[in-house]
Design a protein around this nucleic acid. Structure first.
Lengths: 207, 207
DNA sequence: TCCTTCATGAGAGCTGACTCTCATGACTGT
DNA sequence: ACAGTCATGAGAGTCAGCTCTCATGAAGGA
């Protein structure tokens, strides 16, 4: 019951280039603003894109969608992110690298990420596309486990949930805003938490 | 350079009863609305308290403060929360109980909690008083460890950070909104994560 | 009892997330 | 080259979080 990709005005028909140009302009403006790390608002993006706010909303139903698409285009793929540990088959090491990468990205796009959480927390439905990034990273970090035999599938599912909670912007903000850790300590803490969970899950099945 | 407790209009001086009544009316209204689990807004609270919005803001600088104080007054103390495991000296068991309790409270006051996170995520400074609840619970759950000798202090600090991340509304919402778990599965998952971390931290110090 | 103090209400104002309408004019196919 | 389509802009409007001002009237002290 839905168009798939370009849900721009009048859904994918005629005047395609114009629409594409507009969409790109909006996303580019958003990306540029995001890179500053500051908060990103619709009015700001629209102004920077030389587009009216109304038009921006015609291309993206809400701020979250815009930020989501803009970030997705900027973030390295899981492969690129984990290039440093590409040769490693040690899940613990890979998860550590993935966690650190994820959190450093969040720090870099902190303002946009906060805006996204704010826009999403009171409308859970709008969060549908959010998990893509972390899930991709988690899965890729755990490929050595997934490929190899001998791991309890249920344990793997649980580990992924554990990591989805820990490898997150929410974790970063909990550590910095609530516990007042500085960025580096927060990242170190999260990495430690993630590796602990991974080690525990893959360690053994005694008792 | 600051008054300590009742930072009501004209800080604690004359007309004390009137001010107390007003403050209580506002908090009561907030509590009543919170109990419904629905979102809580300043205009709603003010109307329910038969007070103007301006007055509400005179007593509480922002929504977060109001919700914080209102929730704090409603939540069981750590002792009450962990009564069921009061006799237990097993940190794992106690942490499990604490986590489940915490998350069930969050579920009960879901709307207010979401509003609080929304109000807090884009203004980290305003989050100052938030961690009180979970930290209190965590500390109380870990008393058997704290009291007893033989645990690496650094490991304890790290465990508390781990748990501060996992025993949180953010965790619940990550699991329900992003991973689409239902409430019970989400709680079970978080409890599992918390116990895993506790067991790992207190298990031993090998390698 | 009078008078000062001060809590409060009413309401305007500002920002941001959205929504909706209406007129314009650029683009496209004929 | 004309005409109809449709992306877009402008702007008004709603709601919530907040801030600020001004007038009022009740509480409390003298």
């Amino acid at each position: 019951m839905q168009e798939t990709e370009p849900k721009t005005p009048q859904s994918a028909q005629g005047r395609t280039n114009q629409k594409l140009r507009t969409r790109v302009a909006i996303v580019s403006a958003a990306v540029e603003l995001m890179r500053s790390g500051r908060e990103v608002t619709m009015p700001e993006v629209a102004k920077a894109a030389l587009v009216s706010e109304a038009t921006a909303y015609r291309y993206f139903p809400d701020l979250a969608s815009l930020l989501q698409e803009s970030m997705a285009g900027e973030w390295p793929t899981p492969e690129q992110a984990l290039r440093a540990v590409a040769d490693s088959t040690d899940p613990v090491e890979r998860v550590a690298a993935a966690t650190e990468h994820l959190l450093r990205q969040v720090v870099a796009y902190q303002g946009a990420t906060r805006a996204m959480i704010a826009a999403t927390i009171t409308r859970p439905e709008a969060a549908a596309t959010r998990p893509a990034l972390r899930i991709g990273l988690i899965d890729h970090a755990l490929t050595p486990v997934t490929d190899a035999p001998g791991t309890d599938p249920a344990a793997l599912v649980q580990l992924k949930r554990d990591l989805a909670v820990v490898m997150s912007a929410e974790t970063l903000f909990t550590l910095t805003d609530l516990l007042h850790l500085d960025t580096e300590d927060a990242i170190a803490s999260a990495v430690h938490t993630a590796t602990t969970l991974t080690r525990a899950a893959l360690g053994a099945g005694r008792t």
